[in-house]
Design a protein around this nucleic acid. Structure first.
Lengths: 255, 255
DNA sequence: CCAAAAGTGTTCGAGGTACACCCATGT
DNA sequence: ACATGGGTGTACCTCGAACACTTTTGG
């Protein structure tokens, strides 16, 4: 099956089985090496990148569709995943320019798809070490990019990432999000790097320690992380019980 | 033209000219007589109420469509109007039950509309005294209802109102919203009633006064409101310049 | 021994909350 | 006169921000 045949078959399936005129894009945030990252796909045979996305089956809830897309691209389930905006401008991006850049072998219209597409934005925060980035048949490569240094993005995906990041920052300021972004065991300074990466500014270590411990959502283990030429820090775990309670009460500001 | 003919013509127009499978619902909040209200429409020939809603023309931005719906129902323009959620469950409500309650003369399917509909939720906050509630051909009546005492609502509209109210409360806690809900001139206690109505709890008058004046978004006029059997309170206006600045900076908590 | 990062406590100021009395007005 | 609601100031406490030195470890 050639690429064009595959595309044809795919768009036929979408036309027949999915909600028309609506797509779904996921901004998947990960964290590694003190940097906040986003998972992107490289379009087949090009240097153009885009967000992992998909379509909604006719009898499928939108939230379920988002979980499915995320699972397909990361192998992860049961994630922190949240709808954050519907992108509904009449003209979201230049179609001709986009198709040329993504070397689309045939125009979208020919597939019976409507002129304009609404896109539902979801964002997720995941532990990067647990993710197996997986490309699909339309893409050559799936990998992490630093949010502060993104490549050329197709469609209006740069804008979508920006809105997602804004929402994430706002959310961080009244809810803890670390549980989904950090590995099982981690040190306080590592968690601080995450907060700094999301907020885009540095924090005072003493105040951070005081505050994060004051939430009672972390448990200190008897282990330490060794192997570095400095005092070895304690490892911590999230206390899932208290974490849940804190999420519900929501009075956890981090401004 | 009979009601059925009108409905037929309307759904034909929607099928031909609008985005398929997507609707738009507006939760329009007003404030009067110390109570927070919502604008609802009564379905023709029934006792069932619903939110003002509509559809999106194929070449129209979703935000513009929401402004249009709001204008049609209230006569107001240039409002505080904000998308807050996409309702995308596969089964949002019981269709048979709903059609029976709204005495739908013909089934939806027959109009070429898809099995399920996504709904984009917008909410607005308006000055109730400036609004001219206007019913359309499908509805007999358009009027305000107290949010704490809603009538029987069609579809999943009760749920949509609840989510909108939650969002409004959250928003109130970090942005001032009064400018769009209050008449041109108002007293501090009247504004306090608004905050109390939205937050659902009473506030201390001294602290409220201190706080709201500390935002520097109000200008005291030389007039007072007279006619009541007590000390006549000063009238205030919003200082639109500072109000805008405060909205942008956003550091205006009211928790 | 040196470099690098971890761990830790105090002080200060701002802002939130609780709280009570007198004043102006209409009836 | 009296009932009703408006207007106003103070004290306390909490929370966030600023800030520096000692400890541990590997090289």
């Amino acid at each position: 099956m050639t690429y064009t045949e595959q595309l044809n078959a795919f768009y036929k399936m979408v036309s027949d089985e999915c909600v028309q005129g609506v797509s779904l894009d996921c901004v998947i945030f990960g964290f590694h090496d003190t940097r906040l990252k986003v998972l992107l796909l490289r379009w087949k045979g090009t240097h153009e990148w885009c967000l992992p996305g998909g379509f909604i089956y006719k009898t499928e809830s939108v939230d379920v569709a988002a979980e499915r897309v995320l699972r397909e691209r990361t192998g992860l389930d049961q994630l922190f995943l949240q709808q954050f905006h519907l992108f509904g401008d009449a003209v979201r991006y230049n179609r001709e320019d986009t198709w040329q850049r993504q070397k689309m072998p045939m125009p979208f219209e020919s597939r019976g798809w409507p002129e304009r597409t609404l896109s539902i934005g979801y964002y997720a925060v995941v532990d990067q070490t647990k993710v197996m980035p997986t490309a699909d048949f339309m893409t050559d490569e799936c990998r992490w990019w630093e949010v502060s240094d993104l490549p050329s993005l197709l469609y209006d995906h740069r804008h979508i990432v920006e809105v997602a990041l804004q929402t994430l920052r706002l959310q961080l300021s009244w809810q803890p999000i670390g549980l989904n972004l950090m590995p099982e065991k981690f040190t306080i300074p590592e968690l601080q790097r995450l907060y700094e990466a999301v907020l885009g500014r540095s924090l005072d270590a003493r105040n951070f320690h005081k505050k994060i411990m004051g939430l009672h959502i972390l448990t200190r283990l008897d282990e330490r992380r060794t192997g570095k030429a400095h005092k070895s820090p304690y490892l911590y775990q999230f206390d899932r019980e208290n974490y849940k309670k804190a999420l519900i009460s929501g009075n956890l500001s981090f401004v």
